[in-house]
């Protein structure tokens, strides 16, 4: 049971990083990113491949972040000038494009076979059990990312991003380079997703393109919507609730033993679709976009 809870906490932590990134994109900047999983996948694969080639873990993770940020900037430069519908579809297309590349660039990624044997970093250091050690690592990453997000959201940068979200024209009239600010936001969120991807790869020690379907993107959207878009703290508890619900439905087979496994999985997805719709309609309406308090001068310390 403790093992299970530790595993659950690790998964929540990794998912929180994804949610924090998406919250930066949509919640704070208003970018309708439907391809978040692409940055997660790039971070995971880059980090996995480099570690297996003998590069130290932190360097590999950094390289994964670099790849994802670069990809996000390229994607953003091409698409951020367009309307939000176009941006949404193009990012969704981009994430499928990345998955297709991972699936078919067999020389590099082994395609559908995936990459096994990705080492966990600092295994057995100081005699701490492996999974507790790794949870610690994830928690440190979440703590740092959370603090950075909070600081950034209250910084002049965060205020400008929210201004762009709420009224692009007004921000432009005030002389803000809207495209550049949006690119900054896109890159930052993509970087967080890549850190999550790297942590995921080294946690499960095996990556395969099937892990990076658009479902991940929409789970992240749900987590963000539950927590309230724009709220960094909401990203934490929104993710916790989402993972609890997703995990909880796994036990549904104990309640409904007459339905076989694939059908139960299908029912789960139907419930997830319904949940997505109901939350979009009702939770957003209740909470609206929560705005962080205006930063007093003392918060930065």
């Amino acid at each position: 049971m403790t093992e299970y809870l530790i595993a659950l906490a690790t998964i929540v932590g990794i998912q929180v990083l994804l949610t924090l990134g998406l919250n930066f994109h949509y919640g704070i900047t208003g970018l309708v990113n439907f391809g978040h999983v692409a940055f997660y996948a790039l971070g995971a694969y880059a980090s996995a491949l480099l570690t297996l080639a003998g590069v130290p873990f932190l360097v590999a993770m950094g390289a994964g972040v670099g790849v994802a940020v670069l990809a996000s900037l390229l994607l953003g430069t091409a698409t951020l000038r367009l309307g939000e519908d176009y941006f949404a579809i193009l990012t969704l297309g981009f994430s499928e494009f990345v998955r297709l590349l991972l699936l078919n660039a067999r020389e590099l990624t082994r395609g559908a076979l995936g990459i096994p044997g990705i080492p966990r970093p600092w295994r057995g250091l100081g005699g701490v059990p492996d999974h507790i050690m790794y949870l610690g690592l994830v928690l440190i990453a979440v703590g740092v990312a959370f603090a950075l997000c909070e600081v950034l959201a209250r910084s002049p940068l965060g205020r400008t991003l929210r201004a762009i979200r709420d009224d692009e024209q007004a921000a432009m009239a005030l002389g803000k380079d809207v495209l550049r600010f949006r690119l900054t936001s896109l890159g930052w969120g993509a970087g967080l997703a890549a850190v999550a991807g790297s942590l995921w790869a080294h946690y499960v020690t095996y990556v395969v393109p099937d892990q990076f379907t658009p479902e991940i993107t929409f789970y992240t959207w749900m987590a963000m919507i539950i927590g309230g878009p724009g709220s960094t703290r909401g990203a934490l508890w929104g993710t916790a609730i989402l993972v609890a619900v997703l995990e909880g439905t796994r036990f549904a087979k104990d309640v409904m033993p007459m339905i076989d496994e694939p059908r139960l999985a299908a029912l789960r997805q139907v419930a997830i679709g319904l949940g997505l719709i109901l939350m979009t309609v009702y939770v957003r309406k209740l909470g609206g976009r929560s705005r962080p308090r205006v930063a007093p001068a003392t918060v930065s310390g």
């Binding site: 519908d85 949404a88 929409f218 959207w221 997805q269 139907v270 679709g273 319904l274 997505l276 719709i277």
Partner: peptide, 9 residues
């Protein structure tokens, strides 16, 4: 748009 993704699911 998000609702349509739910419908698709």
């Amino acid at each position: 748009l998000i609702i349509s993704i739910g419908v698709s699911f």
